[in-house]
Structures are given as C-alpha cells and as structure tokens.
Design a protein around this nucleic acid. Sequence first.
DNA 1: ATAGGGTTAG
Length: 581
Amino acid sequence: MARTPSYFTKLLRRPSPKIIQNPNQQFRDIRNTGCGNDSQDKSQHSSEIVKEICGTIRSKPRWENTLLSDFSGVNFSDSTFLNQVLLHQNNVFLSIRLLYWLRSTFEYSPAQSTCSLIFNALVQDNAAKAAKSFLQFTQFVPEPAALESYVRCLCESRMIEDALQVFDEMKKTGVCPSLETWNCLLLSLIKEGYTDLVWELYRDMIESGVVTDLDTLSYLIQAFCLDKNITEGYQLLRQVLNDGYVPHKSAFDKLLFEFILDQKHDRVPALLHIMIAKGIKPDLYTYQQIIHGLCLTRMQREGLFIFNDLKNRGYAPDKIMYTTMIHGLCKMKWIKDARKLWFEMIQKGIEPNQYTYNTLLYGYFRIGDITKAQNLYKEMKTDYKETLIAYNTMINGLCSHGMTTEAFQLFKQMDSQNVCKDVITYNSLIRGFCKEGKLTESLTLLRELVDRGLQPSCSSYGPIIGKLYELGLIDEVKILWNEMQDKNVEPVSVCIDENIIIGLSKKGCIETGVYWLAYMVKNRLVPKQRTFEKLVAILSQRDKLDVGLSVFGHMFKIGYTPSSRLKDMIGANSFDSGLIV
DNA sequence: ATAGGGTTAG
C-alpha cells in the first residue's frame, strides 16, 4: 500500500524520528569527526582499492551480493586493510552495514580504533538508536569521554532510561562524569516530567561531591515548579539572585506559569519586573504561557486582555499564540471573538495548521454549530483531517449532539485509513451511545478497547455504569466495578456519579464505597460532606468502619468537624474510644 | 538569529 499521510503522522508521533531521515544526507564522513589519527594511509596501491570498494558500496544498493566477485583479488581477511575501508566510507551507516557484512561473512571483528571512530560519528550525529545497537552488536566498550557524549546523545533523543543506565554503569566503573553530563540528565528528566528522578540524581550529585552551577540550579527551580512546589522554587530563585547570579529564562517562565495556575496573580507582575531588572526580557513564549495558564484556570477574559495589550505594545502574536487564545475563547463559547482572531490571523498571513483548525472545530461543536463544524472539517487538508485528534474532536463533537451514527461512520473510517484510535476515541463514542440508550454498542466498544490493549479510564466505564444502574441492572454494574478495580482504573468523581456510589453501597455492593473512598483518600480529595457521611454510615453498619475512619482521619486533618448527624449515624463510641485521630 | 509553547473526553 502507498504511504498515505496518516502513515507519516503515525511515524511522527514516535519519539525519535531523527533516524528515519535519509541516512545518505544526514550523516557525515566519519573521518571528519576529529577523533583518532591512525587512518593515515601508507600504501598507495591499497588506497585505490579502498576508494573503489567504497564507491561500489555507495552506488550499488545490493553490493553484498557482488562485492566478493567484483573484488576477487582482494584479501578480505586483512584487518588493517578492512579498517581503512571502514574509515574511508563517507557515510557512517554504510560503514556499519559493511561492518555487519564483514562480520557475518568473515567473522571479522573491527579494531578498537575503528569501533571508536564509528561510534563517535554516530554519537556526533545524534543517532542514538544506531549507536545503541552498534554497542550491542560489537560489544565495544567506549572510552569514558565517549560514553559521556553518548549519555548526552541519548538524552537528546529522549532515551532517558538508556541514558540513566549507561550513566550508572559509568559511575560504577569509578568514573566521575562531568557537570555538563549531570546537567544534561537533569534537563532530560525535567522534560519527561520525572521529578522524583531529578531529586534522586541531585542527591547523587551532591554525594559525589560535584560542584553545581547555574544550570543545575535553574533546573532545580523548574523541578520545584513541576512538583507544584512554587514556594521552594521561588525561594531558590531568590537565593540564586542574592548570590549574584541570574537563572535561565525557562526557570522564570515556569515560575510565572505556576503562579498563574496557583491563582497567585499578584506575584506575576512582580516576577516580571525582577526578570526585566536582571536583563531577561519576557518574550512571546513567556506571555503565551501566561495566557495559556489563565485559559486553563477559566480566566480567559484576563488572557484576552493581555493578548490585546501585547498587540497594542507592538508584539506580533504567532500561530501558537493565536491558537492558545482562540482555544481559550472557544472553551468559554466566545465563538465570535474566536472567529475574529481566526480571520485576523489569516489576514496577517498566518496559515492555520492542524492545531488551529482543531481548536476552531472544537469551538463550533462547543456552541453546537454542527454545520459550521462540518464545513470547517471539509475545508481541512487531508493531512490535518486524518489525524487522531481531528477524528477525536469530530467524533466527540458529533456524539455530544446526538449524532452517533455519523460519529461511528468516522470511527470506522479510521481503521481503513490506518489512523490508530486511542482511549479518547472510544470514550467519546461510549458516552454518545450511552446517552442514546445504546448499551450493547457501548459495551461492544468497551470490550474492543480492552481487547486492543488500551488502558481504559473512568470515562470508559462511567457512562455504562450509570446507564446500567438507571436500569437497575446491579449485577452487571458489579461486574464492571470489579473489572475497573482489576485494571486499576481510578473512580474519578466527574465520571462516576456520587449518588450511584451510595446507591450501590446501600444495595449491598459495599466494595463500591470502599473503592471510591480509598481513591478519595489516596488523592487527598474531599468528598461532599453529605456523600461522605452517608457512606461512612453504611460502611459502619457493615463492618467496614476502618475504611470510613481512614477517610475521616484525613478530613479531620484538613479541619473538617464531624456533624452531630454523623455521630448519631456511626455511634458516639467510635469517637470516644479514640479511633479517629 | 537559537528553542520552547498551542489541539481531542470527563
């Protein structure tokens, strides 16, 4: 089958697309990597043959079949000669291919210096995957310095697990890595959001006696932000400033974003002033993050104000800025303003891309303008239309307005176009079918979702459980509840109605309440007082008071005082005997 | 002139 656009989009979704590019264009001549100088050619005669062989390998796609007969006089067991061929190949991937061929044909094993050159070339070209398989294949052990570059290369290719593994092995051999490598790992961990590993690595750093620098501290500030620990993040920033240094702009940006998310709006201008005073100019990215944060916390009006203010001050919003703002407006159903920005953007010569289209598409569905949504969808380029997210937006939008038939049509189309579905695709349809009372269809989809190896979420079960409960099919509900627990699906409140939890518990389905309360405790959530009280009462009647009490202890800590009603329900003795503390 | 950032459910 021909490579349809969706084939490419699937490839693009993979983390490391670098290697997919044409190796002939991307990779450099390994002689130019500046490592090793043992490639001096002494024999004029063999030098010619080396060139010829390299030329053949470069030009003949299937040279493996004919190389021996084409060069029948050549002694392919002479390792000095073969090293020269490898080193003179002007493309590191071709060198590797030759190496593999030599190995399988002659059991040739390359000299350390050759391995080193090839390996370094791969690392320099950021071909992390190739470098990894090269190491596996040759069992070659690089020098510490080369290993460090390799670790950084792995980081840049987002192969952080591999990077950490190599790094650990390095340390075990007694090598102390350079600060640059430590920092590189820290940054990668932050990009992946693995903050616990950031702190672990940082402890390691300190224990190893590494002296940290400004980069390290900037990363730590960001790690604090990711942990939602803004207070400490900000403190560290102040400390660095007091010591006379200025952290990275990204540290400021992240702090600003977290201040917004945390509704600490008064801190924002103050921090912006500090930035400017320290010579760091807030840029479009900074403001985009601020606007994005405002939109996430339902403060689109303020976001729009800043957006317009920026324009007045001469900033030219870019495509992402427009998309962020349009999305915020669509979310609050301000479609007029959203459309105004959309056309303004186009007029400025900025073409909408798949993000922008999706955003407006979502907006039309949000206000229930199906016709406009469908027209916009028709207008989209095939590359934009046939993506997972565009399909999800359409399917969900249609389902929200009772058009499950049309949605299911698109759902089937995804298969024929080789677009992978995800849990959102399924959940949207499940919800749509349930709303129309089509339980069979929903359950079929749930089965399909699980069979495909996708992890179901609470939204996969919630609508079905709700419908089953409505119909009084308690046994069926129980089966699904058990399945949810088996699959570690969290019973998120927005997906599962609290009344159902109570209803089920009352009907003898105690596990429901237990499971739900355990979830609330684990996530430090506060159930509605009445729901909580009813549940505790039910649990106490059925010898499950321990769970109820554990939640109670948690609520007690946050300052909730038990009502007399609750005391009556579960009996004053429990309080007197000091169970709750 | 660097990069990064934006889209889909509940």
